[in-house]
């Protein structure tokens, strides 16, 4: 494993001692400038892998390191300055404005007592602008649509100014335009040097926007590599237990010819 980025090597984890493995012998690297999409059926271990890489879970076997330093040895606030995480969902017991929620992303920089300085405000404004949430910055997050709220949470992670960004199904519940905008944003962040891991169920968007794919099945890494390596009909049919036909994205666009998997009606195959 090279020095830069976040790397998990031979990770194994289970929630109960002697229980079934949630993640088994999986390696994954989140490298600068690269979008890694983690795919797989429900319960294949995607979220557990993300939690292992974020430090929220400790692997039973294997190790996670950030720039050659074991992740568990990095102090919490240092870690949060370098790894931003957008979890699938979070409780929202009290009303809070968009601006205040994004401001939470500055905590790893501010700590207990320091007041936000100009640098902090700039980072917040930049993050809100990147996610197009600045025009409703003073609204209560509870009154936003699902897509708007999701963008606010991405903005909070960006306000951390991390070098690594981990997102758990960030596009779930977003409409077509917002899905495309979000994936475009992730791709351009990678273009600026950020390392990005996203969990998604959308094979076709992953194939178009991610540099590398990791396909999990029952806790194991079934396939990894470029979209062309992973989006193959025999492989996907084995993992998802459903017939698919892989075609090329017709374009136009920069992602023309990206492989696209079309699930078939079962009748046709039989």
């Amino acid at each position: 494993m090279s020095g830069a980025g976040l790397a998990g090597v031979d990770l194994s984890f289970r929630y109960a001692p002697q229980g079934p493995w949630a993640v088994r012998d999986v390696s994954a690297a989140v490298e600068p400038g690269v979008v890694l999409a983690v795919l797989g059926p429900n319960g294949s271990g995607k979220s557990s892998l993300l939690r292992l890489l974020s430090g929220a879970l400790e692997p039973e076997v294997g190790r996670v390191s950030l720039g050659d330093v074991p992740l568990s040895r990095i102090p919490d606030r240092d870690r949060a300055r370098r790894i931003g995480v957008v979890p699938q969902s979070e409780p929202s017991p009290f009303p809070i404005s968009v601006r205040d929620l994004v401001a939470m992303g500055r905590y790893p920089h501010l700590g207990t007592w320091r007041e936000p300085a100009r640098r902090d405000h700039e980072a917040m404004e930049r993050a809100m602008h990147r996610c197009s949430v600045e025009h409703f910055a003073d609204r209560d997050v509870g009154t936003l649509s699902g897509g708007e709220a999701q963008r606010v949470r991405v903005a909070r992670a960006l306000a951390q100014e991390p070098e690594i960004l981990l997102l758990d199904e960030p596009a779930a519940g977003l409409d077509l335009r917002h899905q495309m905008e979000l994936h475009t944003l992730l791709r351009s962040l990678a273009g600026e040097g950020m390392g990005i891991l996203l969990i998604t169920h959308d094979l076709n968007l992953a194939s178009r926007f991610a540099h590398r794919l990791l396909l999990l099945n029952e806790g194991h890494a079934t396939a990894k590599g470029t979209p062309g390596d992973v989006v193959r009909d025999t492989l996907l049919e084995g993992v998802y237990q459903w017939p698919v036909r892989v075609v090329e994205h017709p374009g136009p666009g920069p992602d023309v010819r990206a492989p696209q998997a079309i699930p078939l009606a079962r009748r046709v195959v039989e």
């Binding site: 949060a80 931003g84 905590y107 207990t112």
Partner: peptide, 19 residues
């Protein structure tokens, strides 16, 4: 005070933000 604000968004979120 600040850790409490973050904890209100759930322990996961607080952890990811460095609490």
């Amino acid at each position: 005070a600040r850790p409490f604000d973050l904890l209100a968004r759930g322990e996961d979120v607080a952890f990811h933000l460095g609490v």
